[in-house]
C-alpha cells in the first residue's frame, strides 16, 4: 500500500516536471515516468517513513489545507514583527534559547512542526530530542518557563498537526 502511494506521488511529481507534452517529450516521457516511479516505489518503499493508510482519509487532507492557511497567517504576522525589529533604530531584541515540549510522536509530524517553527520568523528550532523536547531560539524571549513557552510557540501548530498525523 505504501509502495502504491509512493509510486503515485513520484509519478505526479514527474508529470509536473515534464508538463508541456509536446512532440519532444510526448508519450515516451510519460512511459519512462511510469517505469521510473515503479522502480522508486518497489526499491525505496521501505525507506520512506511515515507513509501509511492514514494517507487516504480525506478529513486529514482538509485539516492539512486548513493548516497551510493558519501557517501562512502566522508566518506573515511574524514577518511584520521581525521587519519592525530590523528597521527600528534601537533594535528591540531580546534573544535566547528556550526549551519547549511537544506531544507529537510521528516523525513526519515532528519534522513539519520543527520546520514550521523555523519558518515562522522570530523562532528557530535548534534541536529536537528523542523524549519530545524542542530547543527553540527566540528573538524576543517573553518567558523562560517551559510550560508558558510551549503555550506561546508550539500550541497553535501542534493541535492541528495532531489531527493530521496522529
Amino acid at each position: 500500500m505504501r509502495r502504491l502511494i509512493l509510486g503515485c506521488m513520484a509519478f505526479i511529481m514527474w508529470l509536473m516536471l515534464t508538463w508541456p507534452f509536446n512532440s519532444s517529450v510526448g508519450y515516451q516521457g510519460i512511459f519512462i515516468g511510469i517505469i521510473a516511479s515503479c522502480f522508486v516505489a518497489i526499491f525505496f518503499g521501505d525507506y520512506i517513513p511515515g507513509i501509511s493508510e492514514k494517507f487516504l482519509e480525506p478529513q486529514r487532507w482538509l485539516w492539512a489545507i486548513y493548516y497551510i492557511f493558519v501557517f501562512l497567517w502566522y508566518c506573515f504576522l511574524g514577518n511584520l514583527d521581525v521587519a519592525y525589529r530590523v528597521l527600528h533604530p534601537d533594535m528591540p531584541i531580546k534573544p535566547g534559547i528556550v526549551k519547549v515540549r511537544t506531544k507529537l510522536n510521528n516523525l513526519i509530524g515532528l519534522t513539519i512542526l520543527a520546520n514550521s517553527i523555523t519558518l515562522t520568523p522570530g523562532t528557530t528550532t535548534i534541536e529536537a530530542t528523542d523524549d519530545g523536547y524542542l530547543y527553540v531560539h527566540w528573538i524576543n524571549v517573553k518567558t523562560q518557563d517551559e510550560q508558558e513557552a510551549t503555550e506561546i510557540i508550539v500550541k497553535k501548530f501542534e493541535e492541528i498537526l495532531e489531527r493530521i498525523f496522529e
Binding site: 526549551k99 520543527a114 523555523t118 519558518l119
Partner: peptide, 27 residues
C-alpha cells in the same frame, strides 16, 4: 528551514558565542 536548523545546531555545538544581550541559553 532544514538548512537553518542544521547551521544553528552546528554553531551552537561548536560553542560560537551568542550576543551579549542574550537572555538564556537552555540548549
Amino acid at each position: 528551514p532544514t538548512a537553518a536548523h542544521a547551521l544553528a545546531r552546528a554553531s551552537s555545538v561548536s560553542d560560537i558565542k551568542m550576543w551579549e544581550g542574550t537572555v538564556c541559553d537552555k540548549f
